[in-house]
């Protein structure tokens, strides 16, 4: 009889330990997703700040491109309004801003004086890098989401996940259409 009690205690202890470690693993994965999302957020905000500067600088040299300016400003304002939206919705809006910016920089190609402007060159470097940072942050975020989602779906961690209320996270995707239109900020 004694033996059985020990076996039961042993099984319970093993179950408890594996439950705790699975739960902690899930928490780590979710925190990674959160951190990665915060990183994307930082870069997107940086881009909102850069856009008005860039538009102002280009305006000084290319007055006739009003349509392009309006498009960029509109896309930026729309994106800024939706900062609290989910990853999927935000991805769509942000990719529109990306493609509008791509068009603005393509327009700038036609103005040699603008391309020689130091201020513009500095802004251009900043924007290129910010675009890159957004895509690298997205890359890291999506990998983190993949790991979290795997854990919430794979056996046996899915049991722990559903018991403690872990949900699969949403990927940050830019729509294919916008991706194709946006030349990877090219100069």
């Amino acid at each position: 009889m004694d033996l059985w009690i020990w076996i039961v205690i042993g099984v319970v202890v093993i179950l408890a330990i594996s439950f705790i470690s699975t739960y902690n693993g899930l928490v780590r994965a979710r925190n990674q997703v959160k951190n990665a999302w915060a990183q994307i957020d930082v870069q997107l905000k940086r881009r909102y700040d850069l856009v008005p500067n860039l538009v102002e600088t280009v305006k000084g040299y290319a007055r006739h491109e009003r349509e392009t300016f309006e498009m960029v400003t509109k896309a930026r304002n729309l994106a800024q309004q939706l900062t609290s939206a989910g990853a999927g919705e935000r991805g769509r809006v942000e990719s529109e801003l990306s493609s509008a910016l791509g068009r603005l920089l393509a327009v700038a190609e036609n103005y040699p004086e603008l391309k020689a402007n130091q201020n513009f060159l500095a802004l251009q470097e900043e924007l290129t890098s910010t675009e890159n940072k957004i895509s690298f942050a997205r890359q890291y975020y999506n990998d983190a989401v993949l790991r979290l989602n795997n854990r919430t779906q794979e056996f046996p961690s899915n049991i722990v996940a559903s018991m403690t209320g872990f949900k699969a996270a949403e990927y940050f995707e830019t729509t294919l259409e916008a991706e194709r239109q946006a030349p990877r900020v090219s100069f």
Partner: peptide, 16 residues
């Protein structure tokens, strides 16, 4: 060195 600095920043983000 804005370009170098930016690239290091980019890769810091990519590597986590």
């Amino acid at each position: 060195f804005p370009r170098l600095y930016n690239i290091v920043e980019e890769m810091t983000i990519a590597s986590g």
